[in-house]
């Protein structure tokens, strides 16, 4: 378990309200042109306004900075506490969950601008909403599950040391948000689902393969997972840019996972070589 905790964001102690500007990259649907729209918003220090609250306020009064009535912005959200991954977008050029993007931190001064863009590695559905089906599809490629014999009562699972549990727990907090994919130079946008199976899996899926290979019963599919990681779009496609680990909101040691799986794939390949008939 990580021993580092983030330092508290410095909340601007500025009294009174301030006006900030929200610039949103808009797009009415796939193939439609993109355009920017700007809104102004009054916020005050310590009021807890985040990107979601800002979008909610804009939806209730969808008027641009030019005074033009417009259509409310479309966006994705869910839990609003950074455990579901839904509200991921690019905020001021950085991919993150927008629910935890507090205005006091990202736009502390009068006139500050906040830009909101959809993730660029996935097809845009509308405005800030993207289609991340491929993230879940890639979990199938690495068989990210424990192959239990059904749900009948067969007693407890394997015993586990606290150390292994702590390692697995961190890996298991991956919410499939896609931050690591947005930041990865090797992971490119694939509009056509037919190319998904040969395109790069991405850090999250590699890390999930490691998670399940660590489990007593999950191990039974180890070889199949390593085959998937050895194939096209597998662990070899990682360019070692190490951006993934920097943007992961759950601080999952993704590069460690990639390293571990890279070694496992090599060992698996060598073993295979010596068992060839």
């Amino acid at each position: 378990m990580s021993s580092t905790t983030p330092t508290a964001p410095s909340v601007a102690p500025k009294p009174g309200t301030r006006t900030i500007r929200i610039r949103v990259k808009r797009c009415e649907g796939p193939g439609k042109p993109e355009r920017w729209e700007e809104f102004t918003l009054q916020v005050s220090a310590g009021d807890g306004t985040n990107v979601i609250a800002a979008l909610q306020r804009i939806a209730a009064k969808p008027v641009t900075v030019e005074g033009k009535n417009t259509i409310p912005v479309a966006w994705d959200s869910g839990c609003l506490e950074e455990v579901c991954g839904a509200c991921t977008m690019v905020v001021n050029g950085k991919v993150r969950q927008s629910c935890s993007a507090l205005m006091d931190t990202i736009a502390p001064n009068e006139g500050d601008v906040v830009t909101l863009e959809p993730m660029s590695k996935f097809p845009v559905i509308r405005d800030l909403v993207v289609d991340r089906s491929r993230v879940f599809h890639n979990l199938k490629r690495v068989k990210a599950w424990v192959p239990v014999d059904g749900t009948y009562d067969l007693g407890a699972g394997p015993k586990e040391s606290p150390e292994t549990q702590e390692t697995r727990y961190v890996l298991s907090t991956c919410m499939s948000c896609g931050c690591c994919l947005e930041a990865c130079p090797q992971f490119t946008k694939q509009e056509n689902p037919e190319t998904w199976d040969s395109a790069f899996l991405g850090a999250h899926a590699i890390s999930q393969a490691r998670l399940f290979n660590m489990h007593g019963t999950g191990k039974q599919l180890e070889k199949e997972r390593l085959e998937a990681l050895a194939g096209p779009g597998g662990v070899d496609d990682c360019g070692n840019a190490q951006n993934c680990v920097k943007v992961c909101p759950k601080r999952i040691p993704l590069t460690e996972s990639i390293g571990a799986m890279g070694r496992a794939v090599t060992i698996h390949a060598v073993k295979k070589l010596f068992t060839l008939r």
């Binding site: 424990v146 239990v148 749900t151 407890a156 699972g157 015993k159 606290p162 549990q165 727990y169």
Partner: peptide
């Protein structure tokens, strides 16, 4: 609980592994 344990839920463990 047993079933979830078999499915791989990383339940916190005691030092002995329970």
């Amino acid at each position: 609980i047993d079933l979830l344990d078999r499915m791989g839920v990383p339940f916190n463990r005691t030092s002995e592994g329970y």
